[in-house]
């Protein structure tokens, strides 16, 4: 028995288990984010590399004190990644010939609209909340770190130094603060408003307006509008995003759409597989039988129709050819006769 992905998902739907897959599961059409969900627009042209956002993040999330104080900007000389102790980092591009000054930009979890981490997680430790954040529940995490592999932005990190209760660590979009109506720590700390906070649709509008009003200042692209199906962090830049080391090869398809067929159903596989399969198999077999009966009838009819049509066309074409041939012969005969008549006249 061959089972298509669509067919398999239809089973799941039939069995009423989509509740499990509704948030990170496969959706045939593009999910544009929860309405009114929140978002940050990072205008890279306004970032001055002061690391205030890092400090703000560290403070509100009560992360361990940094090895180098946040006022020390020499750390920017080396490319950094997020770690289990820093949810966000500011990086600097080397000043190249084209740009007179180095460009600073902030990196953290982009809070995808349809997160790859969540689709990879078989214990459903990640949730895309209606506020926009992708939150993590350490209590169910088994430490497989699939999320770290799944994330196209290489954001989730792991507390390798924690022997007993290691957790996945990543930006929470300050979910507890945001639900209280406060700004995320980094946004609040940014002195230049290189980070703007608001509803995603508003941030998209703002980004578009900035590009429209200052077309010379920005490249005409809002990073995160469609990348990986869209993210809750958006970026504007004055240089192509690839120059900043940001991936431009991600496409617009959300990760779960690529993987959910296999991954999102894993939890069910573990618990309910035998029970479900038996029932569903019987159900679907029955439906398939009915369907295939219908299908065969329809097919036979279509074939008959097509045959009749092509036969008619063939006959018409052959008739035409025959007619033409006859005409040509007649014409030739006529011409020959005329010619011979002429000749006899001349003689």
């Amino acid at each position: 028995m061959s089972v298509s992905r669509r067919g398999f998902l239809a089973w799941m739907g039939a069995a009423g288990i989509t509740a499990l897959g509704s948030q990170a599961g496969a959706t045939p059409r593009h999910f544009k984010g929860y309405p009114q969900s929140l978002c940050v627009l990072h205008d890279i042209t306004l970032c001055i590399g002061c690391r205030s956002c890092e400090a703000g993040c560290n403070k509100v999330n009560e992360l361990p004190p940094p090895a180098v104080p946040f006022t020390d900007l020499s750390v920017l000389d080396k490319k950094r990644r997020t770690t289990a102790k820093t949810y966000t980092v500011v990086n600097k591009t080397a000043a190249s010939g084209q740009e007179k000054k180095p460009i600073f930009f902030k990196t953290q979890c982009n809070h995808c609209l349809e997160p790859a981490c969540a689709s990879a997680c078989f214990v459903r430790a990640f949730t895309k909340t209606k506020e926009g954040s992708v939150t993590y529940d350490a209590s169910v995490c088994v430490g497989c770190r699939y999320c770290m592999i799944a994330c196209p932005f290489e954001i989730p990190t792991y507390e390798y130094e924690e022997p007993l209760t290691p957790r996945i660590m990543k930006c929470t979009f300050c979910h507890p603060r945001v639900t209280k109506g406060l700004l995320p720590g980094c946004v609040e700390a940014c002195p230049t408003e290189a980070l703007s906070f608001g509803k995603r649709e508003d941030m998209l509008k703002l980004a578009r307006e900035r590009i429209n009003k200052y077309p010379g200042r920005y490249v005409d692209h809002i990073y995160g509008e469609t990348e990986m199906g869209g993210t809750s962090w958006l970026y504007l830049s004055g240089v192509p995003f690839r120059n900043l080391g940001m991936r431009e090869d991600l496409g617009t398809t959300p990760a779960p759409e690529l993987t959910s067929g296999a991954l999102a159903t894993v939890p069910m596989v573990a618990a309910l597989w035998p029970v479900l399969l038996t029932g569903i198999y019987a159900l679907s077999k029955r439906r398939e039988k009915i369907l295939s009966g219908d299908k065969q009838n329809a097919l036979a009819q279509a074939v008959a129709e097509a045959n009749a049509k092509s036969q008619a066309a063939l006959t018409a074409a052959m008739d035409k050819a025959k007619r033409e041939k006859e005409e040509a012969v007649q014409k030739a005969v006529k011409a020959a006769l005329e010619q011979s008549a002429k000749k006899t006249q001349e003689q």
């Binding site: 230049t192 509803k199 508003d202």
Partner: peptide
């Protein structure tokens, strides 16, 4: 982040 006028920065943003 005034929803009524998104392009208008707050005081810190404006100065900086």
């Amino acid at each position: 982040f005034d929803e009524g006028n998104l392009m208008k920065p707050g005081i810190l943003g404006a100065y900086h």
